[in-house]
């Protein structure tokens, strides 16, 4: 009964589509792979050449000020970063940090405008929502494959995969934040004769700031959670250490590298949350 239609060759279609995209947009992908990839690599290298003690001091000072001149977070940062250094994972930490920063920045640069657009247009909302669902629920490994096809092996496909996975929250939260601005404030803005962009920048975005920042925080955390998966396509860093440990069944080094990711996650999370409060 169910066999009256032969197997739909969806997989083949996707293969063809990916090949087509690769052929058509090679002129974009190649420079991204070469130039952007080179830029990311050299940033990571540059970061790992800064004396660790200097980085630790800077991070400690920064956490001290963003947390409202409290010592807790700074002490954690000093101890945590020293521990990573002590475990000889410093360079890996810098690579992971670079990956997360680039992935997050790109996610935010794409995500906030997309969220704004979504909040302004029913159509945009209807189209973007299922795409976001797709991005978040499709297993991350699946888009590692086209990432490699488009960008080869290295940090760039890792960033690409992270961006796909990490963008949805900032889009959703931006949309939500703007839609939640009270009708009376929107009316007030209109009644004083604001243009669309005046209303957006002077009323809606400031009102939605906290919600958007919560989305940014989520995005950064998701980007961080991708580092192990990104290492499967050759992104260096702490994720790579975890992956190696997994493949060799070495509990100890796996745990240590994993702990390094946790330390980085906590510092980034607390800093971005505190920025939101200010």
């Amino acid at each position: 009964m169910l066999d009256f239609i032969p197997k739909i060759p969806l997989a083949d279609w996707v293969n063809t589509a990916v090949e087509r995209i690769q052929d058509t947009f090679e002129f974009i992908f190649d420079p991204i792979k070469e130039d952007f990839g080179g830029f990311v690599e050299s940033t990571a290298e540059w970061l790992s050449q800064i004396p660790p003690i200097l980085v630790i001091i800077i991070v400690a000072l920064m956490t001290f000020f963003v947390s409202g001149k409290k010592f807790g977070l700074s002490i954690f940062a000093i101890v945590g970063l020293w521990f990573v250094y002590n475990q000889e994972l410093w360079e890996q930490l810098m690579y992971t940090f670079t990956l997360v920063v680039f992935a997050s920045l790109i996610s935010i640069i794409i995500g906030i405008p997309a969220g704004i657009w979504m909040s302004k247009s029913k159509w945009a909302q209807a189209i973007i929502t299922p795409i976001l669902d797709f991005m978040q629920t499709m297993p991350a490994f699946v888009y590692l494959i086209p990432a490699v096809v488009f960008f080869g092996i290295g940090m760039v496909p890792g960033i690409f995969a992270s961006v796909v996975f990490a963008t949805p929250p900032v889009v959703r939260f931006t949309n939500l934040g703007i839609r939640q601005v009270s009708a009376e404030l929107v009316e007030a803005a209109d009644a004083f004769g604001t243009t669309g962009s005046q209303k957006l920048f002077k009323v809606e975005l400031p009102m939605a700031r906290k919600t958007i920042m919560a989305g940014v925080n989520q995005t950064v955390m998701l980007a961080l959670s991708m580092v192990v998966i990104a290492s499967m396509i050759g992104s260096p860093g702490l994720g790579d250490e975890v992956l190696t440990a997994l493949q060799r069944s070495q509990e100890g080094p796996g745990f240590v590298a994993g702990l390094g990711i946790v330390i980085l996650a906590i510092i980034i999370d607390r800093v971005s949350q505190n920025l939101n409060k200010g």
Binding site: E184, E187, P206
Partner: peptide
């Protein structure tokens, strides 16, 4: 100009 029931002031 308009004055609103719940004031419509910008909290920030």
């Amino acid at each position: 100009s308009m004055v609103f029931q719940k004031f419509g002031l910008f909290p920030f």
